[in-house]
Design a protein around this nucleic acid. Structure first.
Lengths: 130, 130
DNA sequence: TTCGTTGCAAACATTTTGCAGTTTC
DNA sequence: GAAACTGCAAAATGTTTGCAACGAA
């Protein structure tokens, strides 16, 4: 029942851009970055394709920073550091034990960690029954 | 230079409500729940007070579910389970090693975990300099 | 009487959607 | 040619803000 996908240059460009950056961009940045190459590009198209990519599991939204969703084409499970000041999102590689690992991983960058947010996503008991 | 706070029944009611629930509500729910008791309450007041509470460190926003911010008056660091179907947010207590702990913690509830989101918040190297 | 708080409505920002035209298969 | 894709603009949604009235110190 899934609707099938057809080829589209805009879509290709969007996913290629996402795969080429580690900046975990938002929709607006993707739009602005591709606009020179695709002058006719519209923001709605960016949003529509992002939604598709999420559905297809090709990307994930890693955070909501300042009310804007941030996307990542690296779907391997990994952690992120989010600056509460400038809003940048930085990959935190590895998967060693929690607090210690985080501190040492970010230490070299001069970052200061003030809090940890851990979210497990899935289906709750009620929803899993269906 | 911080502006000082005066007493306010509405504010008291909002924080009391937040402290009395484990449902990690959003602004709208708080508004709707208090409306009967405070018929004159306005949504703007709820948002303004939530912002204040966050500034004062009395609450934190634990997640953004379906575009709506979810708040928690329990500021002790703990994890959350978020149902991607119904949007409910459930506390995950304890702090044993990651994956295993999560699975066993939620197992009894019948929940199915499909992903983990770990975010470290703080200031990046650039911002920390200031 | 000073200054924080509130209701209300308007303003905002981000994201979604309807429609008509275009592209892909 | 059917169905997916797109631009555009309008709409929807969640949140913020300006202002005048109100309440606490």
């Amino acid at each position: 029942m899934d609707t099938q996908r057809k080829k589209s240059k805009k879509r290709d460009a969007i996913i290629a851009l996402l795969k080429s950056t580690k900046s975990h961009p938002n929709a607006e940045w993707i739009y602005a970055t591709l606009k020179p190459e695709f002058p006719a590009l519209s923001l709605g198209t960016v949003y529509r394709n992002l939604t598709q990519f999420k559905e297809d599991g090709v990307i994930t939204s890693v955070a909501n920073v300042g009310g804007q969703e941030r996307y990542d084409a690296d779907t391997n499970e990994h952690a992120h550091f989010i600056c509460d000041c400038c809003g940048c999102v930085i990959d935190v590689e590895a998967s060693t034990p929690l607090g210690k690992f985080a501190l040492s991983a970010m230490e070299e960058t001069g970052a200061v960690i003030t809090g940890v947010k851990l979210q497990f996503h899935g289906l709750c008991g009620e929803c899993a029954k269906k």
